[in-house]
Simulated scan of single mutants.
Amino acid sequence: MAGSRFIPDRGLTARMVTTMTLLGIVYVAFIVALILVGMPWWLVALIVVGFAIVQYFSSDKIALYAMGAREVSPDEAPELHAVVDRLCAMADMTKPRVALARSDVPNAFATGHREHRSVVCATTGLMRRLDTAELEAVLAHELSHVAHRDVVVMTIAGFLGIVAGFLTQMGLRFTLLSGGRGRDSANPALVALAVVAVSAVVWALSFLLTRALSRYRELAADRAAAYLTARPSSLGSALTKITGDIARIPSRDLRRVEPFNAFFFTPAFTKSGFSLSQLFATHPPVQRRLDQLADISRQLGSGA
C-alpha cells in the first residue's frame, strides 16, 4: 500500500495475516501427515516448490488465458486505458497492465503477484453496459485489490488448495502402489482412508478461511473505491446493473467463468449453484454492499 492514496484498511491487513498464518499451519500439518504415512519428503517438497514457482510467476498469464483475455494497448482500448490512467493518477500508484476479455458476462478482475506485474481486466460485456462513471468505480474497486495486495494473498490461498488436491492424489497413489509399506506396514486401504480423511479436513478448513477473507476483502475494496472516486452511488449503480444483467446471461456462459468468482467484481452464478453460493459465498450479499455504499454516500454528503 506504500504510496497509494487508497484508504488503509487495518482490518483487511489483520485478516490477511491471520488467514495466511492459519493456512500455513494447516498445510504444514497436511504435508507432515503425508510424510508420516510413507510419502517421501523430497517428493512432497518437489511438488510444493514446483507448484509455487509456476503459480508465482505465471498466475497472471494463466488467469488471462483461462478467461480468453489479452493485454491491450491504448490504441486498441482507449476508453479503458483512459479510465485506468486517471485512477492511477488519483491513487498515486503504478499503472498495471490492461487487458480485455471477449465475454458478454459483465465483470472485471485483477491479478498478478506484484503491483508492477499486476493486470486489471474488464470484459467487453462490462464495457458495453456501464457509463464512464460506473466503469471508473468498478475499476477503482479492482485497483484497490492490487493496492492492498490482497490479489497476492488470494492467489496464494488458491494455490494451496491446488497443491492439497494434487498431494492428496499423489499420496493415495503412492500408498496403494507401495502396498502400505510405510513405517508401520499399515493396511494400504486404511492408510488411503486416513489420507482422504486428513485431506477432507484440510480442504474444509482452507475453504472456510479463504471464503471468509474473500467476503471481507470485497467490502474493503468497495469502501476504498468509493472514497477514492468520491462517488459511491456510481459503484452502487454499477453493482445493481451488473448483478441484474448477469441473471439474464445464458447458464453455459456463466459456467465458463464461475472458477473466477473469487476474483470477480461480482460473482457469476448459474441457477443450479445458488444455494451453496449463499452458504459459502466468495462475496457478501449485494444488499450488504449497497448498504455500505449508502452509508459512505451519506458520510461524504454526496446523496444516495
Rank of each mutant, 00 (worst) to 15 (best):
E136K: 02
H145T: 01
R114E: 15
R255C: 03
Y227V: 13
A238M: 11
L22T: 04
P232W: 15
G165M: 08
W203A: 06
V49N: 06
T123I: 12
V191C: 13
R289L: 12
H141F: 08
V195E: 06
D291W: 13
A204F: 12
L239Y: 13
W41S: 14
A101I: 04
V195G: 02
L46R: 06
G125E: 07
L228F: 13
R114P: 00
L139G: 01
C121P: 01
M16N: 06
R5G: 02
F159P: 01
D92H: 12
A225Y: 10
R256G: 07
M93S: 11
A194P: 03
S185G: 02
Q299M: 05
A110K: 00
D222V: 10
Y65W: 10
L80D: 00
W203E: 09
L239P: 01
R255N: 10
A101Y: 02
S206G: 11
L87T: 01
L279I: 14
K61Q: 10
G165T: 02
M154C: 13
F280I: 11
I162T: 09
T124L: 12
A238R: 08
V151F: 03
A122R: 01
L293A: 05
Q169E: 06
K271V: 08
R114F: 03
V44N: 14
S185I: 10
I156Y: 15
F207H: 12
A304W: 11
A66D: 04
M127P: 05
Q287S: 13
R114K: 15
L290S: 07
A238H: 04
L87C: 07
I296F: 11
S272A: 13
N261M: 07
A2W: 03
V146A: 00
P232M: 06
R129T: 08
S206M: 11
